[in-house]
């Protein structure tokens, strides 16, 4: 009986400090990073939200860069991976559709990140290599020279781990926003 009461007292103390106190302090520190603390949202001038720079969103139209495949179809309140074994025939079937969508051939094979779904289905990045691959589609769809698109990709390419990783990535949503800013989408052939 005594132990039970003492347990409740300790439970209450830990709950107050670790849930109340700790959460409040970290929320307080979050004031220093107001943008990312709210989810790194990108808004329009009128205040409506376009999306989050950390969260992939769906792009289907040829004049935008497309993100990696997503098992939950870019549902940002139900993230998930495909959870298919890399030996799975289901995965082959899905990749066949992706290959068709991009029109990839043996001479111009698809970059692997565009065929493989990410863990949460919300990976905001593609490799710079995969962006360049898509430049062949985006440039004519926008009615601009490929070089202009390539230059834009290069400006948006970053290295996620500096010297610790050879990877070069671009953020798809930011790249597409830059596309719309630099090359008026209304003038493009949709």
């Amino acid at each position: 009986m005594n132990s039970l009461l003492v347990s409740l007292r300790v439970a209450l103390a830990t709950m107050l400090v670790c849930v109340g106190g700790y959460t409040a302090v970290i929320l307080g520190v979050g004031v220093l990073t107001p943008d990312s603390a709210q989810g790194s949202l990108i808004t329009r001038p009128d205040g409506t939200i376009i999306g989050s720079r950390l969260i992939a969103q769906k792009f289907d139209k040829p004049h935008y860069f497309w993100p990696r495949p997503s098992a939950p179809d870019y549902n940002a309140s139900g993230a998930a991976g495909s959870n298919k074994s890399p030996t799975s025939a289901d995965l082959t079937d899905r990749a066949k559709q992706t290959v068709e969508r991009y029109g990839a051939t043996q001479d111009k094979p698809l970059p692997a990140d565009l065929a493989a779904a990410s863990g949460g289905g919300l990976d905001p990045h593609i490799t710079a290599h995969a962006a360049l691959y898509q430049a062949d589609r985006v440039a004519p769809a926008r009615g601009v020279a490929r070089e202009a698109i390539v230059a834009l990709i290069e400006r948006h390419t970053f290295s996620p781990g500096g010297p610790l990783t050879p990877d070069r990535l671009v953020n798809v949503l930011e790249l597409n926003l830059a596309l719309d800013r630099d090359f008026d989408p209304t003038s493009s052939s949709k």
Binding site: R68, G81, S82, N83, K84, P86, T87, S88, A89, L91, T92, A95, K96, V99, A104, T105, Q106, K108, P109, L110, P111, A112, D113, A115, A116, A117, S118, G119, G120, D123, P124, H125, I126, T127, P160, D167, L169
Partner: peptide
């Protein structure tokens, strides 16, 4: 690389990326 992609025109040099984040 992802074994399921072996028969398709997909680059195989980057290892298995299914279920992984690029960043």
């Amino acid at each position: 690389p992802t074994q399921a992609f072996a028969s398709l025109p997909i680059e195989q040099a980057t290892g298995n990326l299914e279920g992984k984040e690029l960043r």
